[in-house]
Design a protein around this nucleic acid. Structure first.
Length: 430
RNA sequence: GCCCAGGUAGUGUAGCGGCCUAUCAUGAUUGCCUGUCACGCAAUCGACUCGGAUUCGAAUUCCGACCUGGGCGCCA
Protein backbone atom coordinates (compact mmCIF):
# COMPACT_ATOMS: atom_id res chain seq x y z
CA UNK A 1 0.00 0.00 0.00
CA UNK A 2 1.56 3.27 -1.13
CA UNK A 3 1.80 6.02 1.44
CA UNK A 4 2.44 9.74 0.93
CA UNK A 5 6.04 10.80 1.54
CA UNK A 6 4.98 13.43 4.06
CA UNK A 7 3.76 10.70 6.40
CA UNK A 8 6.95 8.62 6.26
CA UNK A 9 8.68 8.84 9.65
CA UNK A 10 11.37 6.77 11.38
CA UNK A 11 8.49 5.02 13.18
CA UNK A 12 6.87 3.92 9.89
CA UNK A 13 8.84 0.68 9.75
CA UNK A 14 8.22 -0.75 6.29
CA UNK A 15 6.96 1.70 3.67
CA UNK A 16 6.05 1.78 0.00
CA UNK A 17 6.28 5.11 -1.77
CA UNK A 18 5.53 6.23 -5.32
CA UNK A 19 6.82 9.34 -6.99
CA UNK A 20 9.34 10.93 -9.30
CA UNK A 21 13.14 10.73 -9.15
CA UNK A 22 14.09 14.25 -8.07
CA UNK A 23 17.87 13.78 -7.89
CA UNK A 24 20.39 10.98 -7.90
CA UNK A 25 23.85 10.83 -6.37
CA UNK A 26 26.05 7.82 -6.86
CA UNK A 27 28.99 7.63 -4.49
CA UNK A 28 30.21 4.26 -5.66
CA UNK A 29 29.36 1.72 -3.00
CA UNK A 30 26.51 3.91 -1.84
CA UNK A 31 23.85 5.70 -3.88
CA UNK A 32 21.24 8.25 -2.89
CA UNK A 33 17.98 8.92 -4.68
CA UNK A 34 15.63 11.72 -3.74
CA UNK A 35 12.08 10.62 -4.48
CA UNK A 36 9.42 13.32 -4.70
CA UNK A 37 5.65 13.14 -4.57
CA UNK A 38 3.28 16.04 -4.12
CA UNK A 39 3.66 15.91 -0.36
CA UNK A 40 7.42 16.03 -0.10
CA UNK A 41 10.81 14.50 -0.78
CA UNK A 42 12.32 11.37 0.75
CA UNK A 43 15.85 10.05 0.50
CA UNK A 44 16.22 6.47 -0.68
CA UNK A 45 19.65 5.13 0.25
CA UNK A 46 21.13 2.15 -1.56
CA UNK A 47 24.11 0.40 0.05
CA UNK A 48 25.10 -1.51 -3.06
CA UNK A 49 26.49 -4.55 -1.30
CA UNK A 50 23.37 -5.08 0.78
CA UNK A 51 20.55 -4.84 -1.77
CA UNK A 52 19.29 -7.26 -4.41
CA UNK A 53 20.49 -7.44 -8.00
CA UNK A 54 17.05 -6.22 -9.14
CA UNK A 55 17.26 -3.08 -7.00
CA UNK A 56 20.77 -2.42 -8.27
CA UNK A 57 19.75 -2.85 -11.91
CA UNK A 58 16.78 -0.51 -11.55
CA UNK A 59 18.86 2.09 -9.73
CA UNK A 60 21.43 2.02 -12.49
CA UNK A 61 18.87 2.33 -15.26
CA UNK A 62 16.51 4.93 -13.82
CA UNK A 63 16.72 8.55 -15.05
CA UNK A 64 15.71 11.79 -13.34
CA UNK A 65 11.97 12.46 -13.28
CA UNK A 66 11.11 8.84 -13.98
CA UNK A 67 8.14 7.47 -12.06
CA UNK A 68 9.10 4.81 -9.54
CA UNK A 69 7.65 2.67 -6.79
CA UNK A 70 10.06 1.97 -3.96
CA UNK A 71 9.44 -0.18 -0.91
CA UNK A 72 11.71 -0.91 2.01
CA UNK A 73 12.64 -0.17 5.56
CA UNK A 74 12.51 3.35 6.96
CA UNK A 75 15.34 4.24 9.29
CA UNK A 76 16.08 7.24 11.40
CA UNK A 77 19.21 8.87 10.03
CA UNK A 78 20.47 12.22 11.20
CA UNK A 79 22.54 12.75 8.07
CA UNK A 80 19.50 12.30 5.78
CA UNK A 81 17.14 15.13 4.79
CA UNK A 82 14.15 15.09 7.12
CA UNK A 83 16.01 12.82 9.54
CA UNK A 84 14.90 9.59 7.86
CA UNK A 85 15.76 7.45 4.89
CA UNK A 86 14.40 4.41 3.12
CA UNK A 87 16.53 1.33 2.39
CA UNK A 88 14.77 -0.41 -0.50
CA UNK A 89 14.06 -4.07 -0.95
CA UNK A 90 12.19 -3.35 -4.18
CA UNK A 91 12.79 -0.52 -6.65
CA UNK A 92 10.39 -0.58 -9.59
CA UNK A 93 10.59 1.75 -12.57
CA UNK A 94 6.95 2.42 -13.47
CA UNK A 95 7.77 4.77 -16.33
CA UNK A 96 11.19 5.81 -17.50
CA UNK A 97 11.61 9.52 -18.32
CA UNK A 98 13.46 10.50 -21.48
CA UNK A 99 16.70 12.45 -21.26
CA UNK A 100 17.60 15.24 -21.37
CA UNK A 101 14.70 16.99 -19.67
CA UNK A 102 13.17 20.14 -21.24
CA UNK A 103 13.85 22.00 -18.01
CA UNK A 104 15.57 21.41 -14.71
CA UNK A 105 13.01 20.39 -12.10
CA UNK A 106 15.59 20.51 -9.29
CA UNK A 107 16.11 24.23 -10.01
CA UNK A 108 19.89 24.26 -10.25
CA UNK A 109 19.56 26.33 -13.37
CA UNK A 110 16.66 28.64 -14.07
CA UNK A 111 14.26 28.57 -16.98
CA UNK A 112 12.46 31.40 -18.71
CA UNK A 113 8.70 31.64 -18.37
CA UNK A 114 8.23 30.77 -22.02
CA UNK A 115 10.29 27.58 -21.68
CA UNK A 116 8.45 26.73 -18.48
CA UNK A 117 5.01 27.21 -20.00
CA UNK A 118 5.95 25.06 -22.99
CA UNK A 119 6.72 22.25 -20.54
CA UNK A 120 4.21 23.23 -17.87
CA UNK A 121 3.66 19.62 -16.76
CA UNK A 122 7.33 19.53 -15.72
CA UNK A 123 7.37 23.09 -14.42
CA UNK A 124 4.61 22.36 -11.91
CA UNK A 125 6.64 19.46 -10.54
CA UNK A 126 8.90 22.10 -9.01
CA UNK A 127 7.75 22.46 -5.42
CA UNK A 128 7.67 26.25 -5.49
CA UNK A 129 5.51 26.29 -8.60
CA UNK A 130 3.21 23.62 -7.21
CA UNK A 131 2.88 25.77 -4.08
CA UNK A 132 1.31 28.60 -6.09
CA UNK A 133 -1.42 26.32 -7.36
CA UNK A 134 -1.98 24.65 -4.01
CA UNK A 135 -2.47 28.12 -2.55
CA UNK A 136 -4.74 29.10 -5.42
CA UNK A 137 -6.82 26.01 -4.67
CA UNK A 138 -6.96 26.89 -0.98
CA UNK A 139 -7.93 30.48 -1.74
CA UNK A 140 -10.77 29.40 -4.01
CA UNK A 141 -11.89 26.93 -1.37
CA UNK A 142 -12.02 29.74 1.20
CA UNK A 143 -13.98 31.88 -1.23
CA UNK A 144 -16.52 29.15 -2.00
CA UNK A 145 -16.84 28.48 1.70
CA UNK A 146 -17.45 32.11 2.48
CA UNK A 147 -20.24 32.41 -0.07
CA UNK A 148 -21.96 29.23 1.08
CA UNK A 149 -21.87 30.35 4.68
CA UNK A 150 -23.31 33.70 3.67
CA UNK A 151 -26.20 32.01 1.85
CA UNK A 152 -25.21 32.76 -1.73
CA UNK A 153 -26.50 30.59 -4.55
CA UNK A 154 -23.74 29.35 -6.83
CA UNK A 155 -24.64 29.82 -10.48
CA UNK A 156 -23.05 29.12 -13.84
CA UNK A 157 -23.94 31.31 -16.77
CA UNK A 158 -23.30 30.89 -20.51
CA UNK A 159 -19.85 31.43 -21.90
CA UNK A 160 -21.22 31.33 -25.43
CA UNK A 161 -23.30 34.44 -26.01
CA UNK A 162 -24.91 36.37 -28.82
CA UNK A 163 -24.09 39.92 -27.75
CA UNK A 164 -21.45 41.93 -26.02
CA UNK A 165 -21.82 42.77 -22.35
CA UNK A 166 -20.70 46.33 -22.60
CA UNK A 167 -20.73 47.08 -26.31
CA UNK A 168 -17.09 47.01 -27.18
CA UNK A 169 -15.17 45.13 -29.80
CA UNK A 170 -12.99 43.10 -27.51
CA UNK A 171 -14.82 39.79 -28.00
CA UNK A 172 -13.70 36.51 -29.51
CA UNK A 173 -16.10 35.60 -32.30
CA UNK A 174 -16.88 31.91 -32.67
CA UNK A 175 -18.88 29.84 -35.14
CA UNK A 176 -22.09 28.64 -33.52
CA UNK A 177 -23.82 26.47 -36.11
CA UNK A 178 -25.17 29.03 -38.59
CA UNK A 179 -25.14 31.94 -36.15
CA UNK A 180 -22.56 34.45 -35.08
CA UNK A 181 -21.62 34.08 -31.43
CA UNK A 182 -18.97 35.23 -28.97
CA UNK A 183 -17.12 34.06 -25.90
CA UNK A 184 -18.47 36.00 -22.94
CA UNK A 185 -16.37 38.78 -21.50
CA UNK A 186 -18.23 38.81 -18.17
CA UNK A 187 -21.20 37.18 -16.44
CA UNK A 188 -22.48 40.70 -15.66
CA UNK A 189 -25.77 40.67 -17.52
CA UNK A 190 -26.70 37.14 -16.48
CA UNK A 191 -26.05 37.59 -12.79
CA UNK A 192 -28.17 40.76 -12.90
CA UNK A 193 -30.93 38.83 -14.63
CA UNK A 194 -30.89 36.41 -11.70
CA UNK A 195 -31.74 39.34 -9.44
CA UNK A 196 -34.96 39.58 -11.41
CA UNK A 197 -35.13 35.83 -10.89
CA UNK A 198 -35.41 36.42 -7.16
CA UNK A 199 -32.21 34.57 -6.19
CA UNK A 200 -31.13 37.66 -4.17
CA UNK A 201 -27.52 36.56 -3.58
CA UNK A 202 -25.59 34.79 -6.32
CA UNK A 203 -21.97 34.14 -7.06
CA UNK A 204 -20.08 32.59 -9.93
CA UNK A 205 -16.45 31.61 -10.34
CA UNK A 206 -15.75 31.03 -13.99
CA UNK A 207 -13.79 31.93 -17.09
CA UNK A 208 -14.06 35.26 -18.87
CA UNK A 209 -12.65 36.01 -22.30
CA UNK A 210 -11.24 39.28 -23.59
CA UNK A 211 -9.87 39.67 -27.09
CA UNK A 212 -7.84 42.76 -26.22
CA UNK A 213 -4.37 42.78 -27.72
CA UNK A 214 -2.63 43.80 -24.58
CA UNK A 215 0.89 42.69 -23.86
CA UNK A 216 1.51 43.10 -20.16
CA UNK A 217 2.31 41.10 -17.05
CA UNK A 218 -1.19 41.54 -15.64
CA UNK A 219 -3.51 40.74 -18.53
CA UNK A 220 -4.80 37.43 -19.83
CA UNK A 221 -7.13 36.72 -22.70
CA UNK A 222 -8.75 34.01 -20.62
CA UNK A 223 -9.07 34.84 -16.94
CA UNK A 224 -11.04 33.57 -13.96
CA UNK A 225 -13.62 35.92 -12.57
CA UNK A 226 -15.13 35.76 -9.10
CA UNK A 227 -18.47 37.52 -9.45
CA UNK A 228 -21.29 38.32 -7.08
CA UNK A 229 -24.62 40.11 -7.31
CA UNK A 230 -26.83 40.94 -4.32
CA UNK A 231 -30.39 42.27 -4.19
CA UNK A 232 -31.53 45.00 -1.81
CA UNK A 233 -27.88 45.94 -1.35
CA UNK A 234 -26.03 49.08 -2.32
CA UNK A 235 -22.43 49.70 -3.31
CA UNK A 236 -21.33 50.14 0.31
CA UNK A 237 -22.82 46.78 1.30
CA UNK A 238 -20.98 44.88 -1.42
CA UNK A 239 -17.72 46.76 -0.78
CA UNK A 240 -17.95 45.55 2.80
CA UNK A 241 -18.55 42.01 1.52
CA UNK A 242 -15.53 42.23 -0.77
CA UNK A 243 -13.34 43.53 2.01
CA UNK A 244 -14.42 40.71 4.32
CA UNK A 245 -13.87 38.13 1.59
CA UNK A 246 -10.32 39.35 0.95
CA UNK A 247 -9.52 39.15 4.67
CA UNK A 248 -11.05 35.67 5.08
CA UNK A 249 -9.15 34.40 2.05
CA UNK A 250 -5.81 35.73 3.28
CA UNK A 251 -6.51 34.36 6.74
CA UNK A 252 -7.36 30.91 5.40
CA UNK A 253 -4.25 30.79 3.22
CA UNK A 254 -2.13 31.99 6.12
CA UNK A 255 -3.61 29.29 8.36
CA UNK A 256 -3.67 26.32 6.01
CA UNK A 257 -0.75 26.83 3.63
CA UNK A 258 2.27 27.37 5.83
CA UNK A 259 4.37 24.78 3.94
CA UNK A 260 3.51 26.34 0.60
CA UNK A 261 4.20 29.86 1.85
CA UNK A 262 7.55 28.64 3.18
CA UNK A 263 8.30 27.12 -0.22
CA UNK A 264 7.70 30.53 -1.75
CA UNK A 265 9.82 32.15 0.95
CA UNK A 266 6.87 34.28 2.03
CA UNK A 267 7.76 34.28 5.70
CA UNK A 268 6.38 37.81 6.03
CA UNK A 269 2.95 36.89 4.61
CA UNK A 270 0.50 39.32 6.14
CA UNK A 271 -3.28 39.56 6.18
CA UNK A 272 -4.25 43.07 5.02
CA UNK A 273 -5.65 45.45 7.61
CA UNK A 274 -9.31 46.42 7.45
CA UNK A 275 -11.12 48.64 6.85
CA UNK A 276 -9.70 49.49 3.45
CA UNK A 277 -9.68 53.21 2.77
CA UNK A 278 -12.60 54.46 0.68
CA UNK A 279 -10.91 57.01 -1.54
CA UNK A 280 -13.24 59.09 -3.70
CA UNK A 281 -12.14 59.33 -7.32
CA UNK A 282 -11.77 63.10 -6.98
CA UNK A 283 -9.23 62.69 -4.17
CA UNK A 284 -7.43 59.91 -6.04
CA UNK A 285 -6.93 62.32 -8.93
CA UNK A 286 -5.64 64.97 -6.53
CA UNK A 287 -3.05 62.53 -5.16
CA UNK A 288 -1.97 61.65 -8.69
CA UNK A 289 -1.71 65.33 -9.62
CA UNK A 290 0.48 65.93 -6.61
CA UNK A 291 2.75 62.87 -6.82
CA UNK A 292 2.70 61.60 -10.40
CA UNK A 293 4.92 63.02 -13.11
CA UNK A 294 2.34 62.41 -15.82
CA UNK A 295 -0.43 64.99 -16.08
CA UNK A 296 -3.94 63.81 -15.21
CA UNK A 297 -7.23 65.64 -14.83
CA UNK A 298 -10.65 64.98 -13.37
CA UNK A 299 -12.60 62.77 -15.76
CA UNK A 300 -9.61 60.85 -17.09
CA UNK A 301 -9.16 57.14 -16.69
CA UNK A 302 -6.47 56.44 -14.14
CA UNK A 303 -3.29 55.64 -16.05
CA UNK A 304 -0.78 53.02 -14.96
CA UNK A 305 1.60 55.73 -13.75
CA UNK A 306 -1.16 57.43 -11.76
CA UNK A 307 -2.29 54.07 -10.40
CA UNK A 308 1.22 53.41 -9.10
CA UNK A 309 1.57 56.90 -7.66
CA UNK A 310 -1.73 56.55 -5.78
CA UNK A 311 -0.83 53.01 -4.74
CA UNK A 312 2.48 54.20 -3.27
CA UNK A 313 0.63 56.85 -1.27
CA UNK A 314 -2.02 54.38 0.01
CA UNK A 315 0.41 51.54 0.78
CA UNK A 316 -2.18 48.76 0.99
CA UNK A 317 -5.57 47.71 -0.38
CA UNK A 318 -8.02 50.58 -0.93
CA UNK A 319 -11.22 51.37 -2.77
CA UNK A 320 -11.63 54.14 -5.31
CA UNK A 321 -15.26 55.26 -5.09
CA UNK A 322 -17.61 57.84 -6.58
CA UNK A 323 -16.41 57.62 -10.17
CA UNK A 324 -17.55 60.00 -12.91
CA UNK A 325 -20.57 58.33 -14.50
CA UNK A 326 -19.11 59.06 -17.91
CA UNK A 327 -16.17 56.66 -17.55
CA UNK A 328 -18.09 53.75 -16.02
CA UNK A 329 -20.36 51.22 -17.76
CA UNK A 330 -23.99 52.11 -18.47
CA UNK A 331 -25.34 49.89 -15.69
CA UNK A 332 -23.65 51.83 -12.83
CA UNK A 333 -26.12 53.76 -10.66
CA UNK A 334 -25.65 57.55 -10.70
CA UNK A 335 -26.03 59.42 -7.40
CA UNK A 336 -29.51 60.94 -7.11
CA UNK A 337 -28.14 64.31 -5.92
CA UNK A 338 -25.27 64.42 -8.45
CA UNK A 339 -25.74 62.17 -11.50
CA UNK A 340 -22.31 63.18 -12.83
CA UNK A 341 -20.82 60.67 -10.38
CA UNK A 342 -21.98 57.13 -9.75
CA UNK A 343 -21.99 54.42 -7.12
CA UNK A 344 -19.17 52.50 -8.73
CA UNK A 345 -15.94 51.41 -7.12
CA UNK A 346 -12.68 49.65 -7.83
CA UNK A 347 -10.78 47.60 -5.30
CA UNK A 348 -7.13 48.43 -5.70
CA UNK A 349 -3.98 46.68 -4.59
CA UNK A 350 -1.02 49.10 -4.57
CA UNK A 351 0.26 47.32 -7.67
CA UNK A 352 -2.97 47.04 -9.68
CA UNK A 353 -6.73 46.91 -9.92
CA UNK A 354 -8.26 43.76 -8.45
CA UNK A 355 -11.97 44.24 -8.74
CA UNK A 356 -14.61 46.61 -9.96
CA UNK A 357 -18.22 46.86 -8.95
CA UNK A 358 -21.19 49.13 -8.42
CA UNK A 359 -24.70 49.53 -7.33
CA UNK A 360 -26.60 48.88 -10.55
CA UNK A 361 -29.42 50.73 -12.16
CA UNK A 362 -32.64 48.77 -11.57
CA UNK A 363 -35.06 51.16 -13.30
CA UNK A 364 -35.82 50.25 -16.91
CA UNK A 365 -36.16 53.79 -18.27
CA UNK A 366 -32.97 55.05 -16.66
CA UNK A 367 -31.06 52.00 -17.90
CA UNK A 368 -32.23 52.48 -21.50
CA UNK A 369 -31.29 56.14 -21.24
CA UNK A 370 -27.76 55.27 -20.05
CA UNK A 371 -27.29 52.64 -22.77
CA UNK A 372 -28.19 55.25 -25.38
CA UNK A 373 -25.88 57.79 -23.77
CA UNK A 374 -22.99 55.35 -24.29
CA UNK A 375 -23.87 55.19 -27.96
CA UNK A 376 -25.14 51.61 -27.74
CA UNK A 377 -28.32 50.21 -29.21
CA UNK A 378 -30.87 49.07 -26.57
CA UNK A 379 -32.39 46.66 -29.09
CA UNK A 380 -29.33 44.43 -28.97
CA UNK A 381 -29.73 44.22 -25.18
CA UNK A 382 -33.42 43.25 -25.24
CA UNK A 383 -32.80 39.87 -23.56
CA UNK A 384 -31.10 41.78 -20.74
CA UNK A 385 -33.55 44.69 -20.52
CA UNK A 386 -36.69 42.56 -20.47
CA UNK A 387 -36.31 41.42 -16.83
CA UNK A 388 -36.15 45.08 -15.78
CA UNK A 389 -39.82 45.49 -16.83
CA UNK A 390 -41.13 42.71 -14.58
CA UNK A 391 -39.96 43.46 -11.07
CA UNK A 392 -36.22 44.06 -10.81
CA UNK A 393 -35.07 44.72 -7.23
CA UNK A 394 -32.32 47.21 -6.45
CA UNK A 395 -28.99 45.40 -6.47
CA UNK A 396 -25.22 45.71 -6.44
CA UNK A 397 -22.25 43.49 -7.17
CA UNK A 398 -18.67 43.17 -8.28
CA UNK A 399 -16.23 41.05 -10.24
CA UNK A 400 -12.85 40.11 -8.81
CA UNK A 401 -9.97 38.77 -10.88
CA UNK A 402 -8.87 35.47 -9.36
CA UNK A 403 -5.43 35.49 -10.99
CA UNK A 404 -4.73 39.05 -9.89
CA UNK A 405 -5.80 38.17 -6.38
CA UNK A 406 -3.32 35.29 -6.28
CA UNK A 407 -0.64 37.33 -8.04
CA UNK A 408 -0.79 40.19 -5.54
CA UNK A 409 -1.21 37.84 -2.59
CA UNK A 410 1.97 35.94 -3.45
CA UNK A 411 3.93 38.82 -4.98
CA UNK A 412 4.19 37.08 -8.37
CA UNK A 413 5.79 39.23 -11.04
CA UNK A 414 3.65 37.90 -13.89
CA UNK A 415 -0.04 37.00 -13.86
CA UNK A 416 0.79 33.98 -16.03
CA UNK A 417 2.43 32.46 -12.96
CA UNK A 418 -1.04 32.22 -11.40
CA UNK A 419 -2.60 30.22 -14.27
CA UNK A 420 -1.72 26.66 -15.22
CA UNK A 421 -2.13 27.16 -18.95
CA UNK A 422 -2.31 30.90 -19.64
CA UNK A 423 -3.88 32.26 -22.78
CA UNK A 424 -2.31 35.41 -24.12
CA UNK A 425 -1.82 37.04 -27.52
CA UNK A 426 0.96 34.62 -28.40
CA UNK A 427 0.06 31.47 -26.55
CA UNK A 428 -2.63 28.99 -27.46
CA UNK A 429 -0.67 25.79 -26.73
CA UNK A 430 -0.47 23.86 -24.50
C1' G B 1 -2.77 48.35 -31.84
C1' C B 2 1.70 51.63 -30.75
C1' C B 3 6.80 51.77 -28.70
C1' C B 4 11.32 49.47 -26.81
C1' A B 5 14.61 45.18 -26.00
C1' G B 6 16.00 40.41 -27.40
C1' G B 7 16.68 35.35 -30.07
C1' U B 8 23.97 31.36 -28.84
C1' A B 9 24.14 23.34 -26.78
C1' G B 10 18.30 20.06 -23.38
C1' U B 11 18.34 24.44 -19.68
C1' G B 12 20.49 29.22 -18.02
C1' U B 13 24.42 32.30 -19.93
C1' A B 14 29.51 34.86 -21.89
C1' G B 15 31.24 36.73 -26.39
C1' C B 16 29.12 41.88 -29.96
C1' G B 17 33.94 42.34 -37.11
C1' G B 18 39.66 38.31 -37.40
C1' C B 19 42.12 36.21 -30.84
C1' C B 20 35.49 31.58 -31.92
C1' U B 21 37.86 24.79 -33.81
C1' A B 22 32.39 29.97 -29.37
C1' U B 23 32.88 30.95 -22.51
C1' C B 24 30.97 29.30 -17.96
C1' A B 25 27.33 26.61 -15.20
C1' U B 26 23.88 22.86 -15.31
C1' G B 27 22.65 18.49 -18.06
C1' A B 28 23.47 13.87 -20.87
C1' U B 29 26.91 9.45 -21.74
C1' U B 30 30.99 6.44 -19.67
C1' G B 31 34.36 5.29 -15.74
C1' C B 32 36.15 5.84 -10.37
C1' C B 33 34.45 6.70 -5.36
C1' U B 34 30.23 3.88 1.29
C1' G B 35 27.14 9.31 3.97
C1' U B 36 25.84 12.53 -0.24
C1' C B 37 22.38 16.56 0.51
C1' A B 38 24.04 22.16 -5.69
C1' C B 39 28.54 15.39 -3.58
C1' G B 40 33.51 15.03 -5.80
C1' C B 41 37.04 13.53 -9.76
C1' A B 42 38.22 12.19 -15.09
C1' A B 43 36.88 11.76 -20.17
C1' U B 44 33.24 12.44 -23.90
C1' C B 45 28.67 14.81 -26.16
C1' G B 46 25.93 19.01 -27.32
C1' A B 47 24.50 25.66 -29.80
C1' C B 48 25.28 30.98 -32.94
C1' U B 49 16.42 31.24 -35.24
C1' C B 50 15.76 31.48 -40.76
C1' G B 51 16.65 34.06 -45.55
C1' G B 52 19.26 37.89 -48.03
C1' A B 53 23.08 41.88 -48.07
C1' U B 54 27.86 44.44 -46.75
C1' U B 55 33.00 42.67 -46.03
C1' C B 56 39.13 39.66 -47.74
C1' G B 57 36.58 37.85 -43.21
C1' A B 58 29.93 37.97 -39.81
C1' A B 59 27.55 34.81 -33.70
C1' U B 60 29.04 40.04 -33.98
C1' U B 61 27.04 45.24 -38.99
C1' C B 62 22.56 46.14 -42.26
C1' C B 63 17.58 44.54 -44.40
C1' G B 64 13.42 41.18 -44.21
C1' A B 65 10.73 37.09 -42.00
C1' C B 66 9.53 34.23 -37.84
C1' C B 67 9.61 33.77 -32.54
C1' U B 68 10.11 35.82 -27.47
C1' G B 69 10.25 39.36 -23.31
C1' G B 70 8.81 44.16 -21.52
C1' G B 71 6.34 49.19 -21.49
C1' C B 72 1.79 51.91 -22.91
C1' G B 73 -3.37 52.31 -24.02
C1' C B 74 -7.53 49.43 -21.75
C1' C B 75 -9.01 46.39 -18.08
C1' A B 76 -10.14 41.62 -13.89
Amino acid sequence: MRIPIQSVTPETGHAEICGWVHEERDLGGLAFFLIRDRTGILQVTIPKKKVSEAVLAAAKKVSRESVVRVAGTVKAMEKAPGGRELIPDTFEIINLAETPLPLDVSEKVGAELDTRLDARFLDVRRPRVAAVFQIRSAALHAINNFFHKEGYISITTPKIVAAATEGGTELFPIAYFDKEAFLNQSPQLYKQMMMAGGFEKVYEIGPIFRAEEHNTTKHLNEATSIDIEVSFADHNDVMKTLETLILKTYEYVNRSCSDQLANLELTDFAVPKAPFTRLPYREAIEIAQRTCSEPIKYGDDISAAAEHAIGDEMGSHYFITDWPTEIRPYYAMPYEDDPSICKAFDLMHPRMELSSGAERIHQYDLLVQQIKKKGLNPESFEFYLRPFRYGMPPHAGWGLGAERLIMTMLGLSNVREAVLFPRDMHRLVP
